[in-house]
Structures are given as structure tokens and as C-alpha cells.
Nucleic acid binder design. Sequence first.
DNA 1: GTCGCTGCAAAACATTTGCAAGAGG
DNA 2: CCTCTTGCAAATGTTTTGCAGCGAC
Lengths: 135, 135
Amino acid sequence: MRGRLTQAGLRATRQRLVILESLLVLPGHPTAEQVHRRVAAQSPTISLGTVYKALDSFVAAGLTRRVASAEGSSRRYDADCSEHHHLFCTATQEIIDYCDPQLDQLIREFFAERGLQNFQPHSFSLHITGVKNQG
Amino acid sequence: MRGRLTQAGLRATRQRLVILESLLVLPGHPTAEQVHRRVAAQSPTISLGTVYKALDSFVAAGLTRRVASAEGSSRRYDADCSEHHHLFCTATQEIIDYCDPQLDQLIREFFAERGLQNFQPHSFSLHITGVKNQG
DNA sequence: GTCGCTGCAAAACATTTGCAAGAGG
DNA sequence: CCTCTTGCAAATGTTTTGCAGCGAC
């Protein structure tokens, strides 16, 4: 935990440790507000502004990503920076990570063969919209 | 133009006609603010609030979609509601439509064969991040 | 010690809402 | 005409900023 921060070149402050831990634990890719709610439960003095600044610093350091989403008015964050895809549940608004090396390869092969006119692709992320079953 | 609106069950007001036309013409999937700037150039009395309401009504009527994007603080809109994919240019922040029936089929086949645990997929959209070449 | 980080409060944006007046069918 | 839409302005929500003081290294 502490190591993740220092390795990324960030000071391991008490606040950042709590914020990073909350981001990792919260399901569905939370907003700054949601992270703050969980953080405030154990450390009520950590301000919302600090959560915003900490999340920004995580993104700048490559520890965290911003998640693309069409609905909702707030930005959402993803602690996982490896290449992966997302399931968007239209019922719960949850965003679920989906990892699939075979799918990655399929897409990479497709574009290696076909290419894109006037565009140099760098990374691919599939957005799958639908509804979650069960719990 | 007028037909698109009435067919979608919306009143074809002067404002909506101008707003829809601007949305269709503007490149890169504009924000409400960008649509308003273009609209105001020819009809300075159309307010930003009206642009927001008109865009919302287009989305509700299925004429327009909101676009998922990770960067930027404003919502962006896409006049094209058919299934398609997006190229995200990290240099210009543009979002370019990418249509490819072969890719659609590849993805659909992949998931038909493999399936997803606890998730009922409805639609797929590939986000390709990279940089645009040339103009 | 130094410099980056935090907390607070204010500012800057972005979006929504309420309502009287106007326009579409 | 009746109802939906507009324009305005105010309210609400989200994110950023400035800065004095604190804390990590």
C-alpha cells in the first residue's frame, strides 16, 4: 500500500493511504464523493478537496485511471491501470472490470491486419452495456 | 431535418432545428457549450439552457446519444445513434466515429461463443485511444 | 529544514429547475 | 386553444484554486 505510493513517486501521507485503500475496496468504480464518504467514515477530518487532489495525483502518477462513462454527472475512477474492458450495468449504474487476454488478442490481431486510416491506435477498451444477473 | 424531429415525437421548433443541425455538423462530438456557440452565431437569442433542454429531449427521444469520455468535464453528444465505435485522439481531444460491420460481427461471435458470467450484454462499443495522423 | 500536501473557503464551471410568456400542431 | 417549449434567472452540483500551516522524508 505504502509501497505503491512511493514507487509511483508520491509521498505516502496518511490521507493518501486511506484514499487509495478506499478506492481499491469500493465496487463499481466510485466518484470522488463516494470515495470521500467511505474515507470520512474512518477519518472524518479528511476533506473532499483532499480526495480530489489525491485522486488527481494518482491519475498523474499512473496509479489510477479515469473511467469513461456516458451517464452520471461525476467523474469515476478505476484503481486498476492494466488494460481491461468494462461492463456497464444500466440497472445499477455499476461499472465492472472485465479482463480477457483472448479478447485483447482478437482485437489486436484484427487491427494489425486491417489498420485504421489516419489514426495510430495505442490502446483498446471494449464497453459492454447490459444488465447484471443475480447479485 | 424537420422530419427527424416529428418522427421522433418532438415538436419541430425553430430552436431545435438549429440545434440539431449544429450537432450534426460539428466534428468531434461537441459539448452543450460548443453547440451553443455555433447556434448563437446564427441565432443569438437561443439560450444555453434551451440547448441543454433540447439535447436532453433528443437523447430521451433516441435521436442522439451521450458519449462516454474519461477526460474533460463536460458531457459530449453524438448525433449518430446507430451502433458504432469511437476513436479518441489524445492530442486534439476529438472523438471520431468508427463504423465497421466486420468488427461488430467479430465481437458478437466472440461473446456468443464464450458468454459472460452474470451479465446479459446488450450492446458493444470499442474505445480506441491513440493519435490522429495528418488532418 | 525543505518542499509537497492538507484543510478550508471561495471561485469557477457545468447542469438543472421553476415559471411566466410565446409558439407549434 | 391546448400543450409543449423557450428564455431568464436562480438554485444545485461538481471540480478547481489559493494560501497558510503541517508533516513526510
